[in-house]
Design a protein around this nucleic acid. Structure first.
Lengths: 342, 342
DNA sequence: TACGTTTCCGAAAACCTTTTAGTTCGCTGC
DNA sequence: GCAGCGAACTAAAAGGTTTTCGGAAACGTA
């Protein structure tokens, strides 16, 4: 009787009309049966459900969206998703949306403002319910909210407009936490090697360092050294620093790449890590942080969680409950061997 | 007169009816004017265009798609986009689609078949025009094509069904190219350290190695050593291999992580790379390959290009021009210092 | 039988756009 | 004065779904 079809005819898509016809009812009744509404006799509902199953019927979200004005689709606009940091945020957001039955339209502007406008138009013409903008760094970026008639949430890179909703890692807090850990391990001669000073991330992390040192009444050893975020720079900085300030017993590095380079040189120069020298990284980029010798104590920005939170907040904003402002999400200190056993 | 609005009223979306009313024409005429069709007087067209500009009108893609049956939207289904390899493929595909005015619906199944089915249903109900499935490894994966009434293209991880369209890196060719390079540099005692043997990537790369060695009539030195893809395993393998086969003058590694670990130990044991020992990696993961000392010669699978090609092929398939089968995309050898100057 | 109530179902409108099939109007040619 | 024609425009249908509202049937009550 019921001829179960394995596979699907290419191109053919059954409509609710087909289902209604097969079940021998009107489309209105079929709709009510399928959506679990009242005013349908149980036996009728069963017939409709059976017909829908047999035809592998999938309601057309386009038609549904056209009617309801809600597409249950959000845009995810990234400036540079190739970047190390955009990806986890994106994944967290995708995860949260997936759980909420939302679909995600992905756009990568590749750092180009023209392309960004282009994508924005494409998203709007597809009637997204909301938008997440993922930055490529924690530096504030121009707001797009005024061009967009739906709620917008910024993740990782905040909007320049404080009236927008932004979620960023708390780099000041993360850095302070890392340095407090160094101090708790008894270190008092703490140096600092980080990335280019024009990055907000570098400045924030420096502020966290100062904060924690000031709390403990300890002075920083040597100047903050700024360079690229790379391992190469970590090696170079280590060579300079071990020469210039040989008495240091701890280094706070602005990234795991820098830290990886630093421990490499320290090891070569015969400094035992962590016994002679404790090293802390930042980012918890596991391919580096777990593979250096010794494995790095480092700050994890919880980016996936940040993305998830931003997505959940977007839900709230779509429902009209937004909390504007910059929300700083706490970081987490991952303690490994490079700062010694506690 | 024309009051240009900066910003957009939240929630309000003008329709073509609004545009037509403002321009004083029927919606049919407005539609024709906006779409550059004939049968519209120039002066009328200008009035319509002006009205559309003033209202910031965006045609509703939902309505358009409902009518045309084409959504100009494709699905991108990944098993594990957190993976190292899915990302570039995804970016390449997104890039190709963006250029073609297509939008991309992103779904990450996180390696869960249930979730995959769930996402598949969501995509189909949104009436995607086509689907790209991005695998997490080069091992063949179950086909979804029979459940999907639109064209499907598999990228990175091929479908188990040879009637499907798949794009995979040519690992055999890539490995052979790497080993031929070692031979061309005069090396004759080539060892092999790679990942777990249950990975097709490991087996394919071994086949490439054998091929190239056989061509040159050279025997492999020592057994192929299999372990995790990690840097740690690279270090461990180096310790064993330098002990067991001290006469080797080259190592082909199955990944940059393994190669990075290998050169690290080789350096510590006093083997000069590349003078005493040439090392080749695989993947061209730049955070490793450009930062080791010396920088790694390595095989680049051109994943972004692979993703782009898969996307372009999906276009063709949507137009009814598909070329079934597994398409092997050429790899590229990136020569750096770890194999010596040429 | 007449009437009210409940239960179940269906017709039709609405969402927004494109396209088809006209309709109107002015003009040419006879 | 009229057939014929082309240009410019419009009314209406189509696409798939949900929702509103009205209607029909069934049942109980007076």
């Amino acid at each position: 009787m019921a001829c179960t079809v394995s596979g699907v005819r290419k191109g053919f898509r059954p409509t609710i009309t087909d289902v209604a016809a097969l079940a021998g009812v009107s489309i209105a009744t079929a709709s009510k049966a399928l959506n679990g509404r009242q005013d349908v006799r149980d036996s009728t509902r069963q017939r409709v459900l059976e017909a829908a199953r047999e035809l592998a019927f999938q309601p057309n979200e386009l038609a549904r969206g056209l009617l309801s004005g809600q597409t249950r689709t959000v845009g995810l606009l990234t400036s540079d998703s190739a970047g190390r940091f955009g990806i986890p945020v994106l994944l967290g957001a995708e995860d949260a949306f997936g759980a909420g039955e939302m679909a995600v339209l992905l756009c990568d502007a590749r750092g180009d403002a023209i392309r960004e406008q282009h994508h924005l138009r494409a998203l709007l013409s597809r009637r997204i319910d909301g938008l997440i903008v993922v930055g490529e760094s924690t530096d504030p970026r121009p707001s797009v909210s005024s061009d967009v008639p739906v709620p917008v949430v910024y993740a990782y890179g905040p909007s320049e407009d404080p009236a927008d909703v932004s979620f960023v890692p708390d780099d000041v807090g993360g850095a302070a936490m890392a340095v407090r850990h160094l101090l708790a391990m008894g270190r008092r001669r703490v140096a600092h090697v980080t990335g280019p000073a024009h990055y907000k991330a570098a400045r924030d992390r420096e502020e966290g360092l100062r904060l924690a040192l000031a709390e403990a009444g300890v002075a920083q050893t040597g100047q903050t050294l700024c360079g690229p975020w790379s391992q190469r720079w970590g090696r170079h900085a280590a060579e300079m620093l071990l020469m210039a300030e040989p008495e240091i017993d701890a280094v706070f590095c602005g990234s795991d790449q820098i830290a990886a380079g630093f421990v490499e040189i320290a090891r070569e120069r015969g400094r035992r890590v962590p016994d002679d020298l404790a090293v802390v990284g930042y980012d918890n980029w596991e391919v580096l942080s777990t593979e250096t010798r010794p494995a790095l104590t480092t700050v994890d920005m919880n980016l996936e969680m940040l993305g998830r939170t931003a997505a959940q907040h977007l839900f709230a904003a779509i429902d009209g409950r937004a909390t504007p402002g910059v929300h700083r999400m706490p970081c987490e200190l991952v303690i490994r061997d490079s700062t010694g056993r506690s």
